[in-house]
Nucleic acid binder design. Structure first.
Length: 575
DNA sequence: GCCGTTTTCGGCCCGACTGTTTTCAGTCG
């Protein structure tokens, strides 16, 4: 069984939890957590790195000791240290840390005093009223634990960015109307444009925070007030979404925005740079030594410049190497929506879309594109009324006619061709030859074992008419897992053959992930950002694709559909 | 356990809020 980076990270996180609960040196605990993050965010397989005899202790936060432990995990599938820890402390205690309000100290107390070892025994102890009688605990804490257990039961879901945007817009309007309010902005993972957000972090600048807090907690959609202070409050909306509000004075706006945007790991890295320069960086500004005078803080640029860094775009702030890149002046010039010349994946009424060829084309032209590929489904996808050779030939002629009269936009003749189980394509070479491009995708037999799934896709790419691998992992965010496939192998195969990978911009898909995008960049395979639009309004999904691409460090040159039509044609011709 | 224009030891990001306290530990972001 190959050991994935995620497996290694999970083991390190568990070790960290158990060490934490047993009261180990907190910095040692932190070292394991930080190593877990490094491993998770690597973008290349650790197992492969070991095979290629790369020095793991070169990685940030990983020294000689942890490098050895990673090797042990890759070799044996587990870590003797963890087994040893679990023989002394129940491994499930690590689960208890996930309950809101329970940290290592309280979990340890619950274990020692009440013999709580699992979520089940925790629930029993709370229901029996035993927890409230413990020293340092009380009625409220016990109640909070029961509520926390409930949430774990329900399976805490993150919400998609597109949904968060709608919720945020209304709430922002409400806060903006408050007296004396200046800036109102959503920070956190929302501003970093993560595909899903766990909560909303709103930053407000205002002289008197108390007014804002009253207005915030009185918002009609608030279900529960978790905490309320002068500068910070937390509520839960009826949708279950947690919202944090932070109020700071205008002079601290940049520092607070930086602090509140995160990620936490990025902030820590920046603050560490501050420490080296004897600077204290917090949400109110940048301060020298023990002095009270603020050196910077009005803008984010000011904060960065105090630690000799250029401005870093929010999408990059994950501590995935952006600090090092910034220090070397090698930050990527991230792609923007304006860089795109067209959309290369769209459907019409002919299969499962809602608009006609002409409606889609005109709508794409209105968005300033110079080309749009129509890629309706192929016959195997019967649910979507997929097209056979005959119907596709008809559509091709229709597109030719429309192209003659349409000004300013070229419709490209395409097809979303199903990749069959054996790796062959769902349409004959004869008809594929009449197209400008193909967008090929797996729709069925998603459960194939990893090796077979990978071989199936790579075999499909051997067909010279294969251009773009659409939604490469088939996942639906928070709904359906990706199928098991060796994406690294697929990307390398695509590069060798002159194929491309789609970044599907639909907010339910965003397939590739941010990390996948970064891997594509590292491997050198070009990415196509496409909407998979089934209607004219769907064409607006492009911005979600761009957010994701930016999170994956992609620059205009890394993306196929930033090319002019002429260049595009050249790149699509494999033979 | 990591790391080093503080370099092989002694540091390790910083502040707000809650609950259970009577001055603060624990947790969170």
């Amino acid at each position: 069984m190959p050991v994935h980076n995620r497996d290694i990270a999970e083991i390190f996180k568990k070790v960290a939890d158990l060490l934490d609960i047993t009261g180990s040196n907190p910095f040692r605990v932190r070292a394991y957590r930080s190593a877990a993050r490094t491993v998770e965010g690597l973008g290349q397989s650790i197992a492969d790195m070991i095979e290629e005899e790369e020095d793991l202790s070169e990685l940030p936060g990983i020294g000689k000791d942890l490098a050895e432990k990673i090797k042990e995990i890759v070799d044996t599938g587990n870590l003797s240290q963890l087994e040893e820890l679990e023989s002394r402390t129940p491994g499930e205690l690590s689960q208890l840390m996930k309950i809101e309000g329970l940290g290592p100290k309280r979990v340890s107390t619950l274990y020692k005093q009440l013999d709580v070892t699992s979520l089940k025994t925790l629930k029993k102890a709370a229901e029996d009223g035993k927890i409230s009688r413990l020293e340092g605990f009380g009625e409220k804490t016990q109640q909070k634990i029961l509520e926390g257990l409930q949430r774990v039961d329900e399976g805490e879901k993150r919400i998609k960015l597109v949904v968060a945007e709608e919720i945020a817009a209304n709430l922002l309007d409400h806060i903006q109307e408050g007296k004396g309010v200046k800036e109102v902005v959503v920070a956190g993972s929302y501003r970093r444009r993560k595909e899903t957000v766990g909560d909303l972090d709103i930053l407000v600048t205002c002289k008197k925070g108390a007014h804002v807090m009253d207005r915030f907690t009185a918002y009609e959609d608030v279900n529960k007030i978790v905490s309320k202070g002068k500068t910070r409050s937390t509520v839960v909306l009826r949708s279950g979404l947690h919202v944090d509000l932070r109020v700071v004075p205008q002079v601290s706006y940049g520092a607070a925005l930086h602090y509140f945007t995160g990620s936490k790991a990025h902030n820590i890295a920046v603050r560490k740079l501050g420490v080296k320069r004897k600077l204290k960086i917090n949400e109110y500004g940048v301060f020298k030594g023990g002095e009270k005078a603020r050196m910077a803080g009005r803008t984010e640029e000011e904060v960065y410049s105090q630690v000799a860094l250029p401005y870093i775009e929010p999408e990059l702030r994950e501590d995935w190497g952006e600090i090092e890149a910034a220090q070397k002046d090698q930050l990527p010039q991230l792609v923007t929506l304006d860089d795109l010349r067209g959309d290369l994946h769209a459907h019409t009424k002919e299969t499962d879309g809602h608009h006609t060829l002409e409606e889609m084309a005109r709508s794409a032209r209105d968005r300033g594109y110079s080309y749009l590929a129509i890629t309706d489904h192929s016959k195997r996808v019967t649910m979507a009324h997929g097209m056979d050779k005959k119907r596709l030939s008809k559509q091709i002629k229709k597109i030719d006619r429309l192209n003659e009269k349409l000004k300013g936009l070229t419709i490209l003749k395409g097809s979303e061709v199903d990749i069959l189980k054996d790796g062959s394509l769902d349409l004959s070479d004869e008809i594929l030859d009449a197209l400008d491009l193909t967008v090929c995708a797996v729709h069925y037999d998603r459960k194939l074992p990893r090796k077979e799934q990978t071989e199936r896709i790579i075999k499909a790419m051997d067909n010279p008419y294969f251009n773009i691998l659409a939604h490469p992992t088939g996942r639906l965010i928070e709904e359906r897992q990706a199928y098991d496939v060796d994406l690294e192998a697929v990307m390398k195969a695509a590069k060798e053959r002159g194929c491309f990978l789609e970044l599907n911009a639909h907010p339910d898909r965003l397939d590739l992930t941010d990390r996948d995008c970064k891997m594509a960049k590292d491997i050198g395979v070009k990415v196509v950002v496409s909407t998979d639009a089934h209607s004219i309004t769907d064409l607006d999904f492009m911005r979600f694709g761009i957010y994701q691409a930016r999170r994956g460090w992609l620059e205009p040159d890394d993306i196929l559909n930033t090319r002019s039509l002429k260049q595009l044609w050249k790149l699509l011709r494999r033979k």
